[in-house]
């Protein structure tokens, strides 16, 4: 059975764009404000758990820290550099640590405002390591930081709060 459908005349209908544009701009502003580019320096790892960690917030005046990432298979990621500590050959492992030291020294530079009166560096280093990374690799990284040419003594271990733990 044929039926004549009634199609409304759409020629002159115009959508009012203003509310949509308003909302869209709000979204843009929201994303701009919440974006945290600093998280880009973290390599994705399974962090160890600890109840005693402090909140990862810098106080005013704190020097910006370095993040040294250590993956479960022994790769170190620092800034744009990558080093492999898991080699079978102790000589190559040693080279990797030396290279890490050199790159830390290079990134650290010679800025006198970053040096404490006693000669040590004000820059903290965060060791952002996988729970399964071998402990000796972490120790090597600590030794590299404490090297007399670098003198970074402030360390932070990145940890995760156990699920369900309440805030202090």
């Amino acid at each position: 059975m044929a039926r004549r459908s009634v199609i409304p005349d759409t020629e002159d209908a115009k959508m009012n764009m203003t509310p949509m544009i308003d909302m869209t701009f709000l979204l843009v502003v929201f994303f701009m404000l919440t974006i945290d580019l600093s998280s880009k320096e973290f390599y994705p790892v399974d962090l160890p758990y600890a109840t005693q960690g402090n909140e990862d917030k810098d106080k005013v005046g704190d020097v910006k820290r370095f993040v040294i990432n250590l993956s479960g298979d022994g790769h170190v990621y620092f800034k744009t550099y990558e080093f492999d500590l898991a080699s079978e050959d102790p000589g190559e492992q040693d080279d990797a640590i030396q290279a890490l030291q050199d790159s830390i020294r290079q990134v650290l530079g010679n800025d006198p405002t970053l040096i404490e009166p006693d000669g040590s560096s004000k820059v903290p280093v965060m060791i952002h390591a996988d729970w399964g990374a071998k402990w000796k690799y972490v120790q090597w990284i600590m030794q590299a930081c404490a090297h007399p040419d670098i003198k970074i003594y402030k360390l932070q271990f990145a940890v995760k709060r156990p699920p369900g733990m309440k805030d202090k």
């Binding site: 994303f31 974006i35 945290d36 962090l47 960690g53 990862d56 404490a146 995760k160």
Partner: peptide, 26 residues
């Protein structure tokens, strides 16, 4: 919007243990 959506990544760490290495030993 799409750019900010894609580059949005929530922080994965929330805690840290702070420590000082012994200064005198190197």
């Amino acid at each position: 919007i799409i750019f900010f959506l894609l580059s949005l990544k929530f922080k994965t760490i929330d805690r840290r243990i702070e420590s000082m290495l012994p200064k005198d030993r190197g």
